[in-house]
Nucleic acid binder design. Structure first.
Lengths: 234, 234
DNA sequence: TCCTGTCCTTACATTTACCTTACATTTTTG
DNA sequence: CAAAAATGTAAGGTAAATGTAAGGACAGGA
């Protein structure tokens, strides 16, 4: 279900309630999304769009300076990215029925975080599914969509945990990722007490991606700090 | 993909919401389709059909004077062309079970324009190409038009659910498809809570396409991530 | 040299996700 | 309406994935 290059997509989040902004942003964050910008008004959203060039937008229907639909029209005429609407139950139902069709999806507040993530991931997957970049490491390549490593022409499958650990490393390619951060990416809430387990996974990952797992060159240890994934061009 | 003789096909579009008619029509237009007629009711649709002789229809499931299925039955008894259904999320889809076979397909509103085009083009290609391409798997072949599997020269029919699950896998051939995504493809609206049922279907599909269903080679499990369909050349 | 701490490596135990089956229920068909 | 087919449900079984733990290697410091 989780984590790959789609998590890198630039997301624009527009709502006038700060609490909701915070909530959605943190839901997205926990699922691994990196690039989130927020706005409280249409004016702000347009400004942000211009310099940020989002690849996906979550818009509230009711905004202080107009409706989310107006905003979508403005944006779509210039940019082209998928949109998900948030609407409160009973809010402007009639208007919504008609216009909802221009949206790529919508959710009625209040919603379950799980469902929000499900819909967002579904939209992104469908919108950007043709791109399937192979990640090039020294000595092998990773195909996140297929959850496999290609080494010397051999296709080696990745397990779920390996996949999510590698994804977390890839999101920070070239930078050091702490043990704690990796545990959190792999085990989510209560990521404590898995340090040893993480090590076992690191070993297994190295067996798959490294030519010589005991002298790693792609997934290297920075003693006392964490691990680092070496990706071509990062 | 563009400037095809398929773009000349006469298309009938039936929905009671003018907004949706406009939107779909303009999506189709932009993709190069020339001959589009619209109708708002079953009565209208039947009338248009008689003199226009459509070669493809997009029907809303809910219409003011009856269901899209009734319309399809009426039309199919006289004419024979492929149909794509549109259904709204949350719309009573009891009636929905047990179809989506053959050239037909359906989409849940709201949908991505891109995906609508993708499916329409796929249906047209399948329906109006002289040969219908068999999808080659290791050990068997799938004929989506006829909804059957050919294994060792034997023709084994597919049920509706099996067909739509296989179609979803085929659309992402070679890539991992999550349980959630498969549930959405098979049950559309409210795809939660069918995980177990999905498993039973997977088993039945394997019985049809695999030589040894207990050691699958075509529809393989990636534990914790989803399923993957292996198609020759993908 | 020994000690200390960090990480590696391995073998093994445990768990979880999935398989498999039989059966219940619903839907379609004649 | 009855029979057949399709679909959904549930429970016990299993193997692959994951977690655990113990011994080893290695570096740095005293």
């Amino acid at each position: 279900m989780n984590s790959d290059y789609l998590k890198q997509k630039r997301i624009l989040l527009v709502d006038d309630e700060p609490e909701l902004l915070d909530m959605v942003a943190s839901i997205l964050n926990e699922d691994g999304f990196q690039n989130i910008k927020t706005a409280k008004t249409i004016a702000e959203a347009v400004a942000v769009s211009k310099e940020y060039a989002p690849e996906f937008a979550i818009l509230d229907v009711m905004l202080p300076d107009g409706s989310g639909f107006d905003l979508m029209k403005q944006l779509k005429s210039t940019f082209d990215y998928p949109v998900l609407f948030l609407t409160a139950r009973g809010e402007d139902d009639d208007k919504f029925r008609g216009f909802s069709l221009g949206a790529d999806d919508y959710m009625v507040k209040p919603f379950l975080p799980k469902e929000l993530l499900f819909r967002i991931n579904a939209i992104l997957r469908r919108s950007y599914k043709d791109e399937n970049p192979l990640v090039k490491l020294p000595g092998s390549e990773i195909d996140f969509d297929r959850a496999e490593v290609i080494k010397n022409g051999k296709h080696i499958p990745l397990t779920a945990k390996e996949h999510s650990i590698l994804a977390a490393l890839y999101r920070n390619a070239g930078r050091i990722v702490t043990i704690d951060a990796l545990c959190e990416a792999a085990w989510g809430d209560n990521p404590f007490g898995y340090e040893n387990s993480l090590m076992a996974h690191i070993r297994r990952i190295r067996e798959k991606i490294e030519t010589d797992p005991s002298s790693p060159v792609a997934l290297i240890t920075i003693k006392g700090l964490g691990y680092k994934l070496i990706v071509e061009g990062k």
